[in-house]
Every structure is written in structure tokens, then in C-alpha cells.
């Protein structure tokens, strides 16, 4: 499998992850979580609470507020997307994305 760069989340900062798709997910329900392992029962690190889908349905913007990232103590984890369309949960990413959490300097 080709190398995929990890998502970088800075603790104490509001971070956005933007997903560009080749198809539309307009009208569908999108959820996303970061966990310590690739397993829905792995310890939960964070949940993206602010999820916006563009008008054409091809861009999903996920936001983690600084109030959430400030309390992350893990050094890394994994995230993926859950899309519910027509009542059915379907896969968006074939493989989870690696997530790295970094410290910042300015309080």
C-alpha cells in the first residue's frame, strides 16, 4: 500500500481536516472519531463534533475545537469516516488514517 502521510493535530489548537472526494456525499450523515487503535472498541481519543459538507457534497470539513485538542494526551491514533447513506453505513476510506498529536509552545 502506498505511503499516506499522517494527519497532524496540535494540542490546544482548533484543527481542521478537509476530505476531498471524487463523488458526492450530500445529504448523507458523516461522523468521524480518533481512537488509539484500528478498532471501534479501542480507547476513544476525540470525536469530530463540527462536520460540514460542501454544497456539491464532495468536500467534508471536520473540525476539532481547541477545547478538545487541549485535553488529548495520546501521542497518536487512527481516524476514519463513517458515512450513512440511505440508512446504511458505508466505507469512505479503505484504510484508516494515522493521526499524530503534537505539542505547541504558545499557551
Amino acid at each position: 500500500m502506498p505511503y499516506v502521510a499522517p494527519i497532524i493535530i496540535h494540542r490546544g489548537r482548533t484543527e481542521k481536516v478537509t476530505i476531498h472526494l471524487a463523488y458526492s456525499v450530500a445529504g448523507d450523515q458523516i461522523t468521524s472519531q480518533i481512537r488509539k487503535g484500528v478498532n471501534p472498541t479501542a480507547p476513544l481519543i476525540a470525536t469530530f463534533t463540527d462536520i460540514v459538507i460542501s454544497e456539491d457534497g464532495r468536500v467534508i470539513t471536520l473540525t476539532l475545537d481547541d477545547s478538545i485538542t487541549s485535553n488529548i494526551h495520546a501521542t497518536g491514533g487512527f481516524m476514519d469516516l463513517k458515512r450513512v447513506t440511505g440508512g446504511e453505513p458505508v466505507t469512505v476510506l479503505d484504510e484508516p488514517l494515522a493521526v499524530i498529536f503534537k505539542n505547541v509552545v504558545t499557551a
Partner: peptide, 11 residues
């Protein structure tokens, strides 16, 4: 999947 430094994920 490509991920850039701005956390843009292109699928």
C-alpha cells in the same frame, strides 16, 4: 489517499 501538510485529505 493523499494527505498534505494542511490536513487536506484527497480520496
Amino acid at each position: 489517499v493523499d494527505v498534505d501538510s494542511k490536513n487536506n485529505v484527497r480520496v
